[in-house]
Each structure stands twice: as structure tokens, then as C-alpha cells.
Design a protein around this nucleic acid. Structure first.
Lengths: 294, 294
DNA sequence: TTCTGCAATAGAGAAACCATATCGCTTTGC
DNA sequence: GCAAAGCGATATGGTTTCTCTATTGCAGAA
């Protein structure tokens, strides 16, 4: 039954019998009959078929929620038992918004120092993707904005609040300023994150609140691209102060605080809400709480 | 794996391999090897053994929490799929504190009128037992006091607030009173619920708040016993108004409101907190919410 | 000590599982 | 239109897993 639910999850993710089977290390006929048995046991059709995968039925959609819960808990059970054998060990998968990547490193480094047997995978993702990955059991925790997110379904630990700064070449006209307003940036050649990133939407909102429209002549989903463009001289970008200092250091770039951007959006650790948490995850939450207090 | 977890749950409940096996409709060797395989898969010993069942190990204790969650969700999945086949049908098991039994009937009757294919089992239990049964998947919902209970782990719908009344024979010295104080009862021959009942603890507290000690010369865990004793003439008891009227009707017993007992403890429906609720349970919560509004 | 109740183990038959091979249908490309 | 390719269902057989009966081993009680 649990194996069948795993098959169902894989199928709903891959949307393709062959690939789903492959992802589980079984053959397509096995998955095909497995799903059929699951449907028989539940007495409902879960997947629409007509010589192709045709999406989930409404019942399948509902079942998917339960399947995720059940399979997720089963994995957490195994992990917790492994913990009681081997102590804190295993693999933590984090999905992180680009502007929080340095904090992810800080968090992971601190954690690793205490629990050297835990391996990390840190993926850069936008905030919507982060929550999808948590739902799909593809990541264990994330670093993302804590505002306007479906709280109640996740545990959160606030790490810091973003403050925005301008990054530009040292010979740029704005580089000498002690402070600058959002409205003064509209004349510059702006590099900004792509609109699927929440950071970009926040920056957009800040521009509009200052009465001007943000025009990004250059967009990327990578902050490295933004800063390397700025380093070519003609461009400017807006980044959270922390990340700006990290990326600009050693390149002689200027960093100018932006006025009225002081107590920005909260960023922190998010993890699926569970009662109780798995030991590794609990340790991560503790680590984050400690990091936030420094 | 799921089957193994069921075995584990049954064993932890029955504390005996043979009985646990019987309760699952399998033989003792099957359960024995099943549990061994579960332990092998998890790599941990879950049960202490030495030619006898010797209780759970600490790991087993932790695993039990997850097992309950997983098995419970699997059952809920099956039930929800059955719902999408057959509409609202099945079996609801309620555990109810004795003083709320009339409300349980009211709730079940209303629900049954709307959803005639749902069968009910209503058990009278004390409030501690109710929460144990919810945890152990032995009941689907309960009616109990909502104060000082582990909220957050349960969904609740308040139904009413208890007000306390004195029940006595019509020729009893107190029967003619329009109202009475707690302190005036200490001279009477009191029948009260047993101390494991939360209602009794509330009554005790009310007595003590009035400056006197409650002395129950007769205790029972059944309100029927209390009232039938009162009907013999020499005794009095304290019951919530609703139940007092129900049990005393037709017996010529007197019911006297007790002063200062006005907005008493909240009583309502409690159900395991789940996201989302199963359709039958959701319908029950809706029914309770409606009943509360009348 | 013997007896009794409990859980583990052995062994055999049944059931479930999973892979290879293949079919039927749909879509795609020419 | 037709051939080719992609996709999922089905058939079949070998292997594993499951679960039963029968039995053994062990500890506490008489």
C-alpha cells in the first residue's frame, strides 16, 4: 500500500508512466499494475487515461493530499529511527530564494559544525517553487519570505529583515551619494531579478510607492548575473544589503543605502508543519533560532 | 509496511502478541515475524521482549506517534475515497462525557436525518479517556470539556456552556427554594460523579470556592445512578441543567438552580486535528456548529 | 520439579510481486 | 494517407514474500 502510494506520487509528479517508473527504479508495467491495484483497493479511479496519462481525477487530487501526508510521515519515521541509531545524520535539502543564499550558507555552516554527519543540498529557487517543493517532499526546508505565505501549514523561524541597497560601479554618478531615493533610480540602467521572484515584486512595489515605474533593462534569476553586469560599469542593481556586501566585496563596487527601505520584509526558515518535528529538522530550526539571535 | 505498522499499533494496544494478532485476524507467528521485519526495516528495536511482551523501547514510543499518524491517515484516505463513491456513509464513533450524552443524541439525530447512511456508536467515557481514544484511533470524535485540553492538536466546536442545578425529591427541604447556594448543600446527602470525571472536579472546585468541602456519600460514573438514587427520596445530586431536566422529567423530582454557577464550562465537539478533515467528520463539525447556533 | 502460558522458529503452500515480451491505440512526421 | 514512434495496458513466468500449522524454547507459577 505504501509502495503504491509512492508510485502514485511519482506519477503525479512526472505525469508520465515510464518516467515515473524509472524514477522509482521499477519498470513501467509494474507501475501500471501497481496504480491499478491502488485504484481497485480504494474503489476509485485516480488517474485519467486514454492511451496517455491524462491528469488526475478530482478523487485523485484529493487522494494526492493524503498520499503526500502518508508517504512523508513514513519517511520521517524512517529518518527518526535512523537518528536513534546513528545520531544526527542524513541529508537535508534546502530550497532558498537567491537573495538569502548567503544566509543559507551561514545556517548550513553553523549546523554542519555541530552535526558533521549531515549532508546538505542547497538549491536556489523562487518562493513559489519553494513551497511547491515542500509540498512535494522534494525539499526538507526552505529560506523564503515569511509574509503572505500560507502560515499554519508551515513552521517558521525569522532570520532577518531585508534592507535594500543600490550597487553600482565606483565611477557611476550615484556612487558618491550617502543615501538615495527609489525615485532617483529610474534614470539608471537597471538590472533586476526576474518578475517570478518575490524580491522583484517587492522592489517593484517600492518603486511604485515612490511614484515611478521600474524599468529593468536587464533581468536575470541569478544575483551573480546582476552584480557581474554592474561590474561592467554602465549598470546598477538593487540588492539586500547583506548580499550586496558579499557580492561586491573585492570588486571595488559602490554600495549606497536606499532611503525609506529600512525595516523590510522578513526572511526566514520555513519547514512543513509537523507534530512532532523530525530530530534533524528540529536541530535545524534550533540552529536558525540561534542564528537569528546573533 | 502499512500492515506492519497496524501490527505494531495493535501490539502496543493489547500488550500481548496473541491477543494483538487475534484482534487483527491473523495468527501469532505472523504478527511476531511482521514486527521483527518492521524492526529490521527501521533498524531499531521497538518492543522489549524476554519471552514476554515487555513494553515499548524509547524508540518504540517515538515510532508509535508516527505509526498512529500514518495508519490514521491511511484509514482516512480510504474513508474519503469511499465517500466519493457512495456519498456520506460509514460509521462514526463518538466518545462522550456522561453529562453531555443528551447533546450527543441530539447531534447524532440531527446528523442522521441528513445523512441516513452513517451509523453511530456513542460511548460514555470520562474526558481523559476521550482524548486517549482519539489518539489511539479508537474513536472519531468526542464531546467533552473544551477548557484546559490540549488544543491545537484537535479541532473543536463549542456546543454549550454548563449551568449547574440541584436535583432532589419533591418533599426534600430544599425542593421549594427558588435558588440555592453551593454552601447550603453541604448538609445534604450528596450523590456525585466519581472523581475521575471532570464534571466532579468542577463541582468540587465550586464547592471549595464557596468555602465548603464536598462530601459525596454516594459516587457513580453514571448519571442514571445519581438520579435514580435521588428518586428514592433521601438524596440530592448536582447536574447540568439540561441533563437534569431530561433525567428528572416524569419522576416528579425538583430542580433548583444553583446561585453563581451561571456561565459554566464550555462543552463541545472535539476531533483530531487534520488538514483536511474527512468528509464525514467535516459534516459532523458542520452539524455541531449549526446545533450550537440554535 | 512439573505445568502452563507466551513468544520465537521451521517448513510448506499460497499469494503477491516484478520483469520481459508484446499488443493496441494515438500522435507525429513525411 | 501512411509509416513510424511513443505510450500505456496486458500476458506470462520466475522469484520473493506472506501467512498458516506445527513445534520448540523459555520463564514464571503451582
Amino acid at each position: 500500500m505504501l509502495a503504491k502510494l509512492e508510485m502514485f506520487l511519482a506519477l503525479s509528479k512526472e505525469q508520465h508512466f515510464g518516467r515515473a517508473a524509472q524514477s522509482l527504479g521499477i519498470t513501467q508495467p509494474t507501475l501500471s499494475t501497481g496504480l491499478k491495484q491502488l485504484e481497485d483497493q480504494l474503489g476509485v479511479q485516480l488517474v485519467r487515461r486514454g492511451s496517455r496519462y491524462g491528469g488526475l481525477t478530482p478523487e485523485g487530487q484529493r487522494a494526492l493530499t493524503w498520499a503526500r501526508q502518508i508517504v512523508g510521515d513514513a519517511r520521517r519515521l524512517r529518518e527518526e529511527m535512523r537518528f536513534s541509531r546513528e545520531g544526527l545524520a542524513g541529508h537535508l535539502r534546502l530550497a532558498v530564494i537567491p537573495t538569502a543564499l548567503t544566509w543559507a550558507s551561514r545556517l548550513a555552516a553553523g549546523f554542519s559544525a555541530r552535526h558533521p554527519n549531515v549532508a546538505f543540498t542547497i538549491l536556489s529557487r523562487n518562493s513559489a517553487e519553494i513551497f511547491t517543493m515542500l509540498d512535494n517532499l522534494e525539499s526538507d526546508a526552505g529560506l523564503s519570505y515569511l509574509d503572505n505565505e500560507p502560515l499554519g501549514r508551515v513552521s517558521t523561524v525569522e532570520l532577518y529583515r531585508e534592507t535594500y541597497t543600490l550597487v553600482c560601479a565606483p565611477d557611476h554618478p550615484l556612487a558618491a551619494r550617502a543615501e538615495i531615493g527609489w525615485d532617483e533610480l529610474s534614470g539608471s540602467r537597471l538590472c533586476l531579478l526576474t518578475p517570478d521572484m518575490q524580491n522583484r515584486r517587492i522592489v517593484n512595489a517600492a518603486f511604485r510607492a515612490a511614484g515611478c515605474e521600474p524599468v529593468a533593462l536587464m533581468e536575470s534569476n541569478s544575483t551573480v548575473v546582476l552584480v557581474s553586469h554592474v561590474a561592467t560599469g554602465a549598470w546598477v542593481t538593487v540588492l539586500p544589503g547583506d548580499l550586496a556586501h558579499f557580492l561586491a566585496s573585492g570588486k571595488g563596487l559602490a554600495i549606497v543605502p536606499i532611503r525609506g527601505a529600512a525595516p523590510g520584509h522578513a526572511v526566514g526558515l520555513v519547514a512543513p508543519w509537523q507534530e512532532p518535528h523530525t530530530p534533524v529538522l528540529q536541530a535545524l530550526l534550533d540552529e536558525a533560532a540561534e542564528l537569528a539571535n546573533d
